[in-house]
């Protein structure tokens, strides 16, 4: 299983994501410059966190026009796994690959802390290694993680099991229904504000993020064999 990590000008978690894949899964992960227009050689894509294009205009609003985003949409269409973390989630929203939009945190400050989350659906390609309802700890670091969608969309997300993670206890940004991460209808595109790549060793304060990457590998091996 080969991972691509697209790099936009201003991405700053690209190395961290590639490192996590290598350390947790021992699988190759390549940094792919935003001007690339094909991701055919990859089985999964991780859109990293950071401040693509300085978050000018709106978070993710400029990155979505990068050539690589057409390739990401194509990969999603083919059923490949696409994971968007933090700014990557914001880019997926702007690109229309996930429903809803992102607003500034309700308290108007940037927030970095290790947050408690609940696994809302463990039957997804990204969550199979967690228990249903399990409480996990993942770091967050964002100024705009206040997820919003209209009532009808929220109902659909709830009904179809598209809410992957919810904040447990304190909601650190004011997001609708405490949403921390959602998938598309097909379940192969996940966007989440917390950073699983920052929680893969005990010394990081939590290693609950490692299982998200393991789930992806397990899913892929289930589909295509342990090649």
């Amino acid at each position: 299983m080969r991972f691509a990590v697209p790099v936009f000008p201003g991405s700053n978690c690209d190395q961290d994501c590639a490192k996590a894949v290598r350390e947790v899964l021992e699988r190759p992960a390549d940094l792919v410059w935003y001007t690339e227009d094909s991701l055919d050689n990859y089985d999964a894509i991780i859109l990293p966190g950071g401040f693509s294009y300085g978050d000018y205009l709106r978070t993710g609003a400029l990155a979505r026009f990068s050539p690589v985003m057409e390739a990401v949409a194509e990969a999603a269409e083919k059923g490949k796994l696409v994971l968007g973390i933090c700014n990557g989630f914001q880019v997926l929203l702007e690109a229309g690959l996930l429903p809803g939009a992102m607003r500034v945190n309700d308290h108007l400050q940037f927030r970095c802390s290790i947050q408690t989350l609940q696994v809302e659906n463990n039957s997804l390609p990204f969550t199979a290694c967690y228990k249903q309802g399990e409480i996990i700890r993942l770091p967050i670091a964002h100024g705009e993680g206040n997820y919003y969608c209209d009532d009808q969309t929220l109902q659909e997300l709830e009904d179809r099991g598209q809410i992957a993670f919810r904040y447990h206890g304190e909601n650190p940004n004011g997001s609708v229904a405490g949403i921390a991460g959602i998938v598309n209808r097909r379940g192969n595109v996940l966007g989440l504000m917390p950073h699983p790549e920052r929680a893969i060793h005990d010394w990081m304060g939590s290693r609950d993020g490692a299982r998200l990457f393991r789930s992806m590998l397990q899913y892929w091996e289930g589909m295509y064999g342990a090649a």
Binding site: Q15, A20, F110, S113, R198, W203, M204
Partner: peptide
């Protein structure tokens, strides 16, 4: 103060 600072990016921070 420090919760406004991203103190974990680069995934190398062992003591926050």
């Amino acid at each position: 103060v420090y919760r406004q600072y991203d103190h974990m990016v680069r995934t190398s921070t062992a003591v926050r």
